[in-house]
Write a protein that binds this DNA or RNA. Structure first.
Lengths: 355, 355
DNA sequence: CTGAAAGCGCTTACAG
DNA sequence: CTGAAAGCGCTTACAG
């Protein structure tokens, strides 16, 4: 690997001048610039990124705002871990990551945490835009202050975000439809179970449902899909009653579709109906769900690689700040089909990365 | 982030001494060492990896030996791309990657390329151990010369390799069994198609077959699995004749299992039998296979993330050389289920990484 | 046992 | 328009 110093010697100039040419800074005569460019190309010069980082000694702060996780719904644990991992890696490059969390069910905690976040004077922001209206207010502030921001996991459009990092929820629903169909026979019915209390993740969930239905429609399939909505998945008794009512009144149901991350709760309640309803498709590889999968109480889980999503949000924003390379408008994580047989080995910590 | 210089000031010593303590080099009195350690801990000091790399200015060469790919079997393209990607990233850290390829069907080309490889005086080697006996010879040389090496994609044990980067083939076969079962009804039969010409990848393929059979055995399923072996997948006529013979003589066959990366060839030949044999499970997301999947001629492909495998081989070996952190003995890539509906978007180039 | 100095490859004021 | 010098955070001979 040829260095700037060596190029400089070959061109009979100083390293500073070579640097100016490499970065198209002005203040170099066209003549010398051209001469240097030729030599650069000739020797296939590439800047040494780590020396560059060290010399630039710029400090950036990226602030992250995401829902906190709890026992009932630990979905947000994985993205946070991805963020922590990335945080470690970008540290040496002078990027500091500050994380703030809020309550998914409480929009004012969203606003409040955002205000805290602003105090860190971030040069970039990662946002899980849970509440539409409030997000409009927040992003307007960011736009005004000229702080670039990306959306994580929830795709809202028209807010001026640099990028969206997440999954294509419609497609993942569509895929679930396919898997369900492979399991079912022609005359079988399906039960889709919604949760009322999940309004904050409304976007993803409604897209999944649409995708699911679309699969059956597009392929001219005749399985009927019945919907029930449960007020609160955490209210064990009500859940049980609702499900039993549905299953008893519609005996043709052989598959259940739960378009949110709490299919394990449903799985708990249909143990008595296993023979009649052998198939259950849910979303997200949380610990509870994984356990239900391993225990054969869930057939398929669709995962969206939340660890990677968190990692990539930090990663792409860091690249943008450090090297001005804008990320793709959409960074879509792959739609993973997880079964008991290919569930990832968690002893092997995720480690896609360098450093 | 606190720096060595600052620590030194706090401890009233020179940066050199702090450095010695950080890396447990001797030549520091216990007293000062202890004092410095306290301060280090107190301030949660972490070395700046990039400054470290720059200062160490060590140069390492990693040499890679893998099969080249061709039109018939482009499997090895993806690992190579992963390697190239990693190569770019480790460059700034002073690691140079040299790639050598050989003909999978020709063991002497394996030896020859290895000899070329040795000339680069590598400090680490990535090997796809295609031929057992020859591999014994080569690895003995590496062991003698004290050059650490990892196996990529093919798991041989007892050769003294630092790590294996690849997939659990048995498990992936087992998973295929599950998927096949979900597609089939009770009385249906299965046809497994082997390729004689694929001896060099024998290990992975036989493990897949074993896993597949094991699924049916373990779950007490009664679907019969019939085997045929085709001399050469490339001989179109013979392939067609063999398959037709099997399908005609065993009308109960409803699913086909192809435990190698050329299921697309089989898919080409059963178009006339689609209604009778709707399900085909194959391996590896090569371009041809992907096309067959999109065209509904393959039901499931099991992918092993070959890009990542290549990337991680370089990545983990680099970490070992740079920081002496030994990789896990087995770095297993996830077993991906790919269908028409979740086939990755190739416009989005893979980019798990930083820099 | 310890420190001062030079250097890794680049960037950035500053001086001319 | 160009160069010389200092510095990023660390490591490494070398001197004492």
């Amino acid at each position: 690997m040829i260095t700037i110093k060596e190029i400089a010697k070959l061109a009979n100039v100083s390293p500073g001048t070579v640097d100016r040419v490499i970065h198209n800074r002005d203040g170099v005569s066209e003549k010398t610039a051209d001469r240097i460019k030729v030599i650069l190309k000739e020797h296939n010069f590439k800047v040494n990124r780590i020396a560059q980082s060290l010399a630039m000694k710029k400090k950036y702060t990226i602030a992250v705002l995401l829902p906190h996780y709890d026992e009932e719904d630990s979905f947000w644990k994985a993205p946070l871990e991805g963020i922590e991992k990335a945080k470690e890696e970008v540290r040496s490059f002078g990027v500091v990551v500050e994380t703030f969390s809020f309550d998914q069910k409480n929009s004012s905690s969203y606003i409040k945490s955002f205000e805290q976040l602003l105090k860190t004077k971030p040069q970039g922001v990662v946002l899980v835009p849970t509440f539409k209206q409030e997000t409009r207010r927040l992003t307007n502030i960011l736009l005004q202050e000229n702080i670039p921001f990306v959306f994580l996991n929830i795709a809202l459009s028209g807010y001026g975000n640099l990028s969206f990092i997440g999954q294509d929820s419609f497609k993942s629903g569509y895929l679930s439809g396919k898997l369900m169909q492979l399991c079912l026979n022609e005359g079988d019915d399906i039960l889709t179970i919604h949760s009322r209390s999940n309004l904050s993740n409304f976007n993803n969930i409604s897209q999944r449902t649409k995708g699911f239905d679309c699969y059956f429609k597009e392929n001219g399939l005749k399985n009927t899909n019945h919907y029930i909505e449960i007020e609160d998945f955490w209210d064990t008794k009500k859940v049980k009653v609702s499900i039993e009512m549905a299953l008893k009144s519609i005996p043709k149901i052989r598959g259940i579709f739960v378009p949110n991350s709490r299919s394990y709760i449903i799985a708990d309640h249909i143990n008595d109906y296993r023979d009649k309803v052998p198939f259950l498709i849910g979303f997200d590889l949380t610990e509870h769900n994984a356990q239900a999968l391993v225990d054969d109480r869930i057939t398929f889980l669709i995962s969206q690689k939340p660890f990677q999503q968190g990692y990539r949000a930090i990663n792409s924003l860091s690249k943008f700040l450090l090297y001005s390379t804008p990320p793709a408008t959409e960074i879509l994580s792959s739609i993973e089909i997880v079964t008991k047989e290919n569930i990832p080995d968690y002893r092997q910590k995720e480690h896609a990365i360098f450093l």
